[in-house]
């Protein structure tokens, strides 16, 4: 595989007001590789995923995603990114099939792909029930379908297996696992499991890069240390309000 970088970040910074949520992050991720982001809550993991998804603009630094500059060329990257967050990004009053049809139409892809995916996550029987009747695990399975519906080359996954039991995790593995062949950025709180998947490991604390190394060079203890003591204060005055977005 050619070593084309899928993600190149240099000095990437994003603030919320005076609080620095992501502080001068620099990294390169090659195509087809997996980056796992570790860090306590509020360390900037979700902010990083949202910047990569073109949903947040960087305040400083540069970001090239799939060879395009963000945010100037965000339009060219949209539709090539699959985002899976804690929120399923699905309408609760619509059925799984209706939700996926809506997204398929927005992305301009055929509707047969939906049946294929529903089969893959074993949901066809209940695909016409509204989502509010589903368990969280089932909603998460539909969300996985939504994230990979358009066969995106880049997947951004925020603790993708958080609501899934082992059997369901097994089901979505071919779609969002390493075997999917996509470039992946995922967040994790599980040092051993996360490192097993990672090619590159990033540790964030208070928005700063505390650790960035190939997965082979990092041991689980170093990841555990990220969570061990209280994170250092963010780079600004005491404006870090609890309840602000992570």
């Amino acid at each position: 595989m050619a070593a084309t970088p899928a993600i190149e970040l240099a000095g990437l910074t994003r603030r919320y007001g005076e609080r620095v949520a992501l502080d001068e992050l620099t990294l390169t991720l090659e195509e087809g590789r997996t980056l796992v982001v570790f860090g306590p809550n509020g360390a900037g993991k979700t902010t990083l995923l949202r910047v990569l998804a073109t949903l947040l603009r960087p305040h400083a630094g540069t970001a090239r995603i799939l060879g395009r500059d963000i945010p100037q060329e965000s339009w060219a990257v949209r539709g090539k990114i699959g985002l899976l967050t804690h929120e399923p990004l699905l309408y609760r009053d619509l059925s799984a099939r209706d939700n996926l049809r809506f997204h398929a139409r927005l992305h301009g892809i055929g509707l047969d792909r939906i049946e294929e995916l529903l089969d893959a996550v074993r949901l066809p029987g209940r695909a016409d029930d509204p989502l509010h009747a589903y368990s969280r695990g089932m909603v998460q399975r539909v969300a996985v379908c939504r994230a990979v519906l358009h066969d995106p080359p880049l997947l951004l996954l925020d603790e993708p297996r958080a609501n899934l039991d082992p059997a369901a995790a097994e089901l979505v593995e071919p779609l969002i696992g390493a075997a999917s062949g996509r470039t992946r950025v995922l967040t994790s709180h599980d040092p051993a499991g996360g490192l097993a998947e990672a090619d590159l490991a990033l540790g964030l604390r208070g928005g700063r890069t505390a650790l960035l190394a190939g997965a082979a060079e990092v041991d689980a203890a170093a990841i555990g240390a990220l969570y061990a003591d209280a994170p250092p204060p963010a780079r600004t005055a005491g404006t870090a309000r609890t309840g602000a977005r992570p």
């Binding site: 998804a53 073109t54 949903l55 949209r78 967050t85 929120e87 990004l89 309408y91 609760r92 301009g108």
Partner: peptide, 17 residues
């Protein structure tokens, strides 16, 4: 309200439209 509470804005913004 549904878009705001159920992530419809993000879902829409990720689409190439």
């Amino acid at each position: 309200v549904t878009d705001h509470e159920e992530g419809g804005f993000d879902g829409f913004l990720l689409a190439p439209v």
